[in-house]
Design a protein around this nucleic acid. Sequence first.
RNA 1: GGGAGCAUAGCUCAGUUGGUUUAGAGCAUCUGCCUUACAAGCAGAGGGUCCGCGGUUCGAACCCGUGUGCUCCCA
Length: 886
Amino acid sequence: MELSKNYIPSNVEEKWYKHWMNKNYFKSEPDDRPPFTVVIPPPNVTGVLHMGHTLNETVQDILVRKARMSGFNACWVPGSDHASIATEAKVVDMLKREKGIDKNTLSREEFLKYAFEWKEKYGNIIYNQIEKLGCSVDWDRVTFTMDDHYYKAVIKVFVDLYNKGLIYRGARMINWDPAAKTALSDEEVEYKDVTGKLYYIKYKASPDPSKGGEQEAFIVIATQRPETIMGDVAVCANPNDERYSSLQGKKVIVPLINKEVPVIFDEYVDKDFGTGILKITPAHDINDFNIGLKFNLPVVDTLNEDGTLSEAAQIFIGEDRFVARKKIVEELREKGLLVKEEEYTTRLGYSQRTNVVAEPKISTQWFVKMKDLAQPALDAVRSEKIKIHPNEKFNATYKYWLENVKDWCISRQLWWGQQIPAWYDEEGNVYVAETEDEARQQLALSSQHSAISSKLTQDEDVLDTWFSSWLWPMEVFNGISNPGNKEIDYYYPTSVLVTGQDIIFFWVARMIMAGMEYRHEKPFSDVYFTGMVRDKMGRKMSKSLGNSPDLLTLIHEYGADAVRFGIMISSPAGNDLLFDESSLEQGKFFNNKLWNAMKLLKMWESQLAISNQQSAISNDNFALQWFANRLHEVRNEVEILMQQFRLSEALKTIYSLIWDDFCSWFLEWIKPEYGTSISNEVYEKAVFYFDELLQLLHPFMPFITEEIYHLLKGRNDDLMVKQFSPIQNTDPELLTLGDKLKNVISAIRDAKNKNNVKPKEPVSLFIETNEESSYQQIKEILAKQTNADHIYFNKMPEVSAIMTVAGNEKIYIKSDAEIDTTVQKEKLTKDLNYLKGFLITVEKKLSNDKFVQNAKPEVIELERKKKEDAESKIKVIEQTIASLDI
RNA sequence: GGGAGCAUAGCUCAGUUGGUUUAGAGCAUCUGCCUUACAAGCAGAGGGUCCGCGGUUCGAACCCGUGUGCUCCCA
């Protein structure tokens, strides 16, 4: 077979994914092996994978593949989230744009039909992307948060929590999204700093009957929201503020609507803010609401659900809140009631989904009581039953949120999602049950009149998406809908959760709560938080900036392995990563390097066949032994790094082992002379090492490793399920000798380079050493790598030669080239100065009595050794320089 | 306003319990090579006031304090 010059990923990726699928390698069923379970953080069903997902899925696939090759029964469950607000918004938009249909003209059933059609049409995009990336998910386990069993589980949990008194319904101040026309949880509101205006408005004092009502007295109130003055029910000053003490028991008139409201006093008011007196509008501000409760004030809600002014506002009814603000300011100005306006920086809450300003609003919603649920979740992390990585960064955030958790508003005024299982009778009594029949039975029990005739109406609202996804690690195995089944008992708790730090509260904390509540067991043992993917200028990736690349385009251009490599190599755990396509290019080059190493071996293989003559293996013994040791040394390092979730470093380590140690050193060391062939044994060993390298790299770059594994020789097995062999101990002496060999080769190459001796030009080497015996193992390689036709030990060359020093050994390089001693002297003098400086620092330490008294004996011994070492090196260099001067 | 984290080569980052040669890697840069696997390559090289200041210690990139700058979370 003709091998292409460079690696072409598109040819092989699809082939291997199909092959793995056909072999059922991704499939998992409970068996005797220990499980390694990962549940995918379900992406939005109608979304596409962005670079953040790409990072997350790659990390998960690396962990899952590694576990699968290490004796675990690896199970990675894919799926998607119905994402109620986001999806409903998309469907509403699509209906309007493509079909000219207004949601309000549809029945609930009709709308849901369109929504499911939409989901069928677009729901597979993400699955296709997950596949293209090479993710080894068990496709028989795809779960959607609105699947029948899942839907039932969510309902079951709602009813259960209600019966336990952990869910209640009530009127509270919540965050309202006027665009989506639904309530939001506190977590769904994002605060941004914005420049707004502070308006100073005159409120006239009510005419005082005792004074004949003639005066023009007024107070000035500063507000950011003049459009809410119609909801004012009082004005409030600090009781210690002398400026307003005369207003005790007085009333003022709200402008424009001429409504009389009382003046009240409360310490809450900051004397220094604005004019020191506030308007109290309980319907539209949480602080005002609390004061309203304290003083038993009425609530006047002047806004409709869509953010327009309501009838209660009396004026500008039906105008949008921001339009109304302008008009009111204008009218106040015309009437001389606007004293001034000034620039003011404030924080406004925006709906995470629709990006409109959220309104604080009094509304009757369903809530989960969080305090009791939070405690076990807190304990699980405190006791390190669940370990968060990187620990130091996120533990504090997690704990703070749980310790200060507020009740969770879970009802949403939407249709796409699980409909709240609460039924109301005609008198407004509520019955919470899994089915209408059960609700009816409750009704029958609780009342005298006939249950059959009485009309029950189900709550129109659906549940927050996160109220379904918090059950994810359990219900993907039917752990809620069918507790005690074989799968949930085997796979739960899952092994590791990989997700973005932005959903620590939305999802991670709540999954822990649900797990502790329903299985009395953590949902996962480790949580690995990935950072945010930014562009190379450090900006967030966003559609509006156009800096978010399309995954399939990248895969098409670089190949999935290169994309995986590129995103992993630059992504330290938990830190944001600056995404730069140049790292994908590096991945592509790496693919090519692997490909060419394979081609070299194939070339050697073909020469094995033609030639009977074999070079003696003894020359290659050192290379083989050294590489075997180096391989196991690195496997050991990688194992530790993986356990610590330092995947980026693990990949770097493997990369360098393959590129530097294997390709640049090992293959060159065993490369046969031109015209000769490699020995069978050396060839077989080289292939064996290559296999091991491919295996080590496979979790990171699955496609190319599988491809090369099969091209290297005929196989009956596949790399993706090949089990790792045990890691062997390494021989430190052999590794040290390997390092020495590399150093000597580099020093000689450097000397040749600096003295303008061409690399190919043959030389003779004269090495002054105390360890001549150790050179016996490496001198053949040394000769080959430096193009030396002779190596002499402890013998002077008869004519002048280039001199260099490696370690504490003096090396003469004899060649036909002209010798320029100044270049050599420069280099030697530089080394000498470095060593002298170094020696001074060491001597300083050793001559310090306190150091000798206090430091550990090993440390002192080490310093002494450093000193001796430096001294002997200095001596060699000084001698060499002296001999250059002759 | 409260809290967390970060600051090391041009860039992105390692640096474990304070001592492992007066700090390492990748990328970028420079020099020399079209060498029978790979120019998407090979062989080399240069590049650092470890953010400033103060302290603890025989010894600090690392510990403590403080200042400055950046990022994130929460209200």
